[in-house]
Design a protein around this nucleic acid. Sequence first.
DNA 1: ATGAAAGCGCTAACAC
DNA 2: GTGTTAGCGCTTTCAT
Lengths: 364, 364
Amino acid sequence: MSRATAEKSITGRKRQRVTITDVARLAGVATMTASRALNRPEMVSEELRGRVLHAAAELNYIPDRAASGLASGAGLALPVLVSTLHHSVYVQILEGLEERLPAAGYQIMLGSTDYSQEKEERLVEAFLGWRPSAVVLSGLDHSERTVRLLRASGIPVVEIMDLAVTGETGQPLDLNIGFSHGQVGGAVVEYLAACGYRNVAYAGTLTEIDPRSVRRIEGFQRALKRLGLPHHLIGRSDLPSSLAVGRDLLSGLLSEFPELDAVFFANDELAAGALFECMRRRICVPEDLAIMGFSDEEIASHLYPALTTVRIPRHEIGRLAADLLLARLSGSPTDQPPIDVGFEIEIVQRQTTRTPPRPPQEKP
Amino acid sequence: MSRATAEKSITGRKRQRVTITDVARLAGVATMTASRALNRPEMVSEELRGRVLHAAAELNYIPDRAASGLASGAGLALPVLVSTLHHSVYVQILEGLEERLPAAGYQIMLGSTDYSQEKEERLVEAFLGWRPSAVVLSGLDHSERTVRLLRASGIPVVEIMDLAVTGETGQPLDLNIGFSHGQVGGAVVEYLAACGYRNVAYAGTLTEIDPRSVRRIEGFQRALKRLGLPHHLIGRSDLPSSLAVGRDLLSGLLSEFPELDAVFFANDELAAGALFECMRRRICVPEDLAIMGFSDEEIASHLYPALTTVRIPRHEIGRLAADLLLARLSGSPTDQPPIDVGFEIEIVQRQTTRTPPRPPQEKP
DNA sequence: ATGAAAGCGCTAACAC
DNA sequence: GTGTTAGCGCTTTCAT
């Protein structure tokens, strides 16, 4: 008696789960008819259907998804691996996914990789045990074993939050929907340069581990070189992102590079922390120093001064991923190329960078 | 491309999953021996164990959790229903839970109720289909059907983030671990009164829907009455919490109750939004107005001025919930009373409220 | 339209 | 220690 699961009850009897057989018995039909009445109502006469539905309600019948998946061979679980839950970006992507997937009968199973390929591998392995119908991954970079397992499983995979670009990133495993981080780095430099900044720094965490960070920095440095600006101003930290780390990054940069006049942070949380540090040090933003964030999380627009940042279509990424998946799962062609959802520099009414030369174009 | 499995998808046939039978065949043992070698290694001779493990690795075998649960009758899924993922509080509780549960073989399945009992009910129903071994719920208040389904399932339930208090809240379904929201409201009033504030307001969202909010307000008003202070200063919003709503709540309160000198917000996000609004309006905090938050999220300590708030032991709640659950699942007694993890008013070095009369007692 | 039988992948219970 | 048998709850397939 090691399993305590269902062993207890006043009589000491095993607590019986209500099964479809119970429902069928109460309705006076065969098990199979009950199953059909529940899942393919149109295949059953109205009368029996009524009886079965009634019996199911009466007994509070809840179908066993595991058994049903086993029998039908269909997967019902849909693992979603995000990099972290601490950035609202991923929370909103999740919301996008949840708009459609549960309604279609799929159960989202959430896992957080903390930007570690090793943890991702363990999660993939664990989730593969649940007969998933597909998998959603963050980023394009995975361990060899992860790739092997996924390939062997033969299920659809969607990689989000990064964009496969030939010569720059690896090939996507299957479906891919995101934006180019290298392009983000370049666009930010161009924007800051257009505002007149010369000594522009990048500051981020996991800058050597997270491939998306790496490519953002590469794009950043490439653009700086092209414009003939110094490209050695980089602040790094190995701690997970937090307001505190943002403050530390700023402090470090300021003491190492006093000539600094603008900093691009890897996310809004870091940028907000830096902004708080500026307040404490009485550094005027953007007069003395420009600060830019990345992601356009909620805090960005409410900071004072409001944070100039890069907006990415989080919700759309989630929704699109769900749509693609649903299409693929119902047997659509298998050659969907990567989808670039793009990004935009969010400068309207934002105040942590100088006014750019031309006013931002209005969008009516 | 030599896949270990027999069937390949050349003809568009379904890719064959690697089963324990394949592993057993390759290892030259009976299926059952393979199962034992994998799950109860001590019951199998070293030699066979080695062969089986090797074969499993060779084939990239991943056990089917659904089938295994079906056969053993044991549940392997562990649904966790949080109120929202937008507050880092719940993210940290999750982290506490994840410290132990996955290692013990349980798969956390996350659901977010958005403070809606109806959504909670749907989620409970969906998750019950996965043969959960237990369920973690947020709060003590659930729909009738939720309670009925859970009771009928006979599995352990842990309710977190609220504390069952006779005469104040309902009885817990089973295990309960949290703190008293009524007590929080009272403690905050006492603290603010001790600082010398007289016109103290409460501001929150879902103040009539979320039972925890309701009890916090009740405790708040009860304390104000006891102290002979006005207790009609309440700001309400029906929108989900956000920085923007915090700003609006503050604006509303200020115009409705110009005499206001302190506001207790239902969470740190709202308080931060209010603080940003104060900056814009050039209202000095805490000179002109005191602001207090609730939860001690990361932003609180990094705002400028740093936010006075109420700290709750999030991580501990998660960890304790996991421990209780694990104990219960391995058959420990069933009469664990509610556990109060308490809270503390976080005032050290926080600056959005006036200095209290006596310095906060040091904790060595 | 309905039912009976077989079996999904795995493990408990009982042989040997 | 190891193998055999039966069956978890459900759906497929094939009768009727």
